[in-house]
Nucleic acid binder design. Sequence first.
RNA 1: GCCCAUGUAGCUCAGUCGGCAGAGCACAUCCUUGGUAAGGAUGAGGUCACCGGUUCGAUUCCGGUCAUGGGCUCCA
Length: 580
Amino acid sequence: MSDIVEKDTAELEILRHSTSHIMAHAVKDLFPEVKFAIGPAIEDGFYYDFDRPAAFAPEDLAKIEKRMKEIIKKNNPFVRKEISKAEAIEIFGQKGENYKVELLQEIPDDTVSLYEEGGFVDLCRGPHLPKTGMVKAFKLLSVAGAYWRGDEKNKMLRRIYGTAFETKEELDAYLNFLEEVKKRDHRKLGKELDLFSLSEDIGPGLILWHPNGAIIRKTIEDFWRNEHIKADYKILFTPHIAKLHLWQQSGHWDFYRENMYSPMEIEEVAYELKPMNCPFHIDIYKSSLKSYRDLPLRYAELGTVYRYERSGVLHGLLRVRGFTQDDAHIFCMEDQIEDEILNILDFTLFILRTFGFESYDIYLSTRPEKYVGSLDNWEKATDALKHALDKKGLAYRVDPGEGVFYGPKIDIKIKDSLNRSWQCSTIQVDFNLPERFDVTYRGSDGKEHRPIMIHRALMGSLERFFGVLIEHYAGAFPLWLSPVQVSVLTIAERHGDYALEIGTALKISDIRTEINTDNEKIGYKIREAAVRKIPYLVIIGDKEVSEKMITVRKRNGENIGPFTAEQFMDIIKDEINGKK
RNA sequence: GCCCAUGUAGCUCAGUCGGCAGAGCACAUCCUUGGUAAGGAUGAGGUCACCGGUUCGAUUCCGGUCAUGGGCUCCA
């Protein structure tokens, strides 16, 4: 099975790579002055980087596509030619293709391969399709700037993105997927459902949670705190600023300064807006002597942190400058690491599943080149992480050398309903901060020992998690999270009293209820509620009033009932409590 | 931060080749009391992102700034 998938993936890559060459050919025909950089296949398609004084206009894409179709129609063969590297440098040098020359100079082999098709030659390892006519379905998608080799010190090139598939149907399916992604965009839904906003007057990357978003956040926070208390975490609250000195001691001022805001001076002392919660939790730990009997000690906080992010990377709720981490720091002894990781994994999966995320990509990152702590500790901690993952039977990938300098980590990416991955949860072992802050506990031997610290965030940041939730549910939140759970709609004005009676009964039972007695037709009120994705609509007309019953319309259009108010309340309370 | 694009009413968007700005939805008032996705009428609402320049005159042209979007790089 996996063989088949890999074979398909390889074929698709070849197809896309060849399409990328055809695009380069078309660009060469239409814009002879361009120089060529690189044009690989990527996950969802391909791109090619060109050096050209002016950017490509969106209209240019149509022209390039047209030319590409002509090239495809000619059905020229892709011809592989092997020549010596020196010869290739000569050829591309003469053409002024300095990017190709630079690439060539870094190829260790003595011979290199060229591919030619219809007179257009490009340096390429291959493989390629036999003939251009085998490209059946492609589309150019967007233009963008991209640095040569991704380095901002280098020249900005003009990139064109496109995609290609084996069949027209697959291409259409992919284009539909892109449409669906657009429809679910949390920035669009956030506006439509009045969940949150950003404001020019407040500042970029700073989120305003509107009532509808705020009630969802409160629901998430209540759930989170209750579950943490049950799981033997201690809930903390800590300030948003602290003396610069604290950040110097923690090492953040040295290693993390580029993400921190400038200090502010208060009574001649420098203070910093916090980018992390850890030093505060350590301070609380150190406020009294700790015994090995106190460990593991778990401190948790929904801590709001501020980090400088370059203006170009900000993105809705997913990349912001101020955010709230669902943070926790666990102080434990070395031989407790594995059990703690097991606990955290269980807890994480429980929380994520509650929000409807059932599949994950898990990564274990190991020791990087620059690190602190002893090799022995690194090995023990990395093994503990591995054992925990193995014991839970969780599939994971090892990212060698991708750990943070202070310890190994596990990252969990959740997959949403469109099968897209989002980095949220992270579990990191830390050998550094306990050392820097001289954190200790008294062991059974009466001596001082150094605890290990584990940082972990399950949702990561509430802002990002909320953004992912919006897209995952396409704005149609499950009942327990819905800002308005029930809307009571009257057919005519004379039904107002009974609607008020029913609505009030729901409200005092802690069901978020709205009573809509507006002077509008029922069809209009239902449309209005449907647009807002309200899960349950209670319809009140003459029949309901005279029978002392209610009729209910679900979000999917299905009608249920008639119920008594009590029957209906039982049904939805069950659904709310079950977080279904 | 860099490249490109965009910024007009609360929202979605027209428009002015330089001469006091327009639609739909939403909002307000009135008519209508209507049974499952938009009933009708009237009205109010804009320093055309901001600052500067050119011009008799700038929302429109030019320059700058800010913000947003697509990327590059980085991350929760």
